[in-house]
Amino acid sequence: MARKAMLIDESKCTACRGCQVACKQWNELTGWEYSKTVNTGSYENPPRLTPQTWTRIKFTEYDSRQGFRWLFLKEGCMHCGEAACVDVCPTKALKKQADGRVTVEPDLCNGCGYCSQFCPFGIPKLEVASVITGQAKASKCTFCQDRTDNGLSPSCVKTCPAQALFWGDRDKMIAAGKKRVETLKTRGFAAVNLYGEEVVGGLGRLYVLIEKPETYGLPADPQYPAMAMMWQNVIQPLGKIAIGGTVLGTFVAWLIIRRNIKMEEVE
């Protein structure tokens, strides 16, 4: 199946935050955690991704050559090609779908939170009922699994009035993104770039950025965490061999000693 992707053209985003509303509405996410809105010194709202906020527009204020400027970034799960969250999830609640979407099945999640700690972008969030008991559920953007499974686009793409969001086959999204980058270059955006084509197995969320990724607060070169690699591919298989080997070794040792020792002589 062709890999799907979302293309986000940040040069067009007006930070209307329709995507945030559409996401909350379609996925039936509450706003309980913001019953008290706090002034954080920025127009951005809410201030961060949470278990109930799977996408949001991050505002970056910076001083460009043309003076003060806002950069808008539609944050959310990157749906990595090499998804560390899926690899470390011990319950298979996180799944890599055939078309590249990384989905979460809340019924399977036991709240261990490894996904939130191994994600190179820090995206999955835990809704923690109690730190003491460890009761929790992980959640994140699933590209509106129930919509995309049925051939629709994610709700944020559907709603975007600035037409900054696109959904489709990843090849086509990359081609469109590159074309947009070329167009913007001719219009004087010197630093414009397409983010996510190659990193971490290729992202399912591609950005046309008008400044360097670091200016938006995105890692320039995000990495699949080395610890996840070592843990899943080295330590766990070797551990199984070590434990199995010890069981087998003691059993063989028992067979040998049983032959060599006459119990009548043991005192």
Partner: peptide, 23 residues
């Protein structure tokens, strides 16, 4: 959490119980 054969016990509510008992 480690052995695939025991995976059903790690999932969902059973998994939350396991984590509670572990604590």
């Amino acid at each position: 959490l480690y052995l695939d054969t025991l995976k059903p016990l790690a999932q969902g509510d059973a998994g939350q119980w396991m984590r509670l008992v572990h604590r």
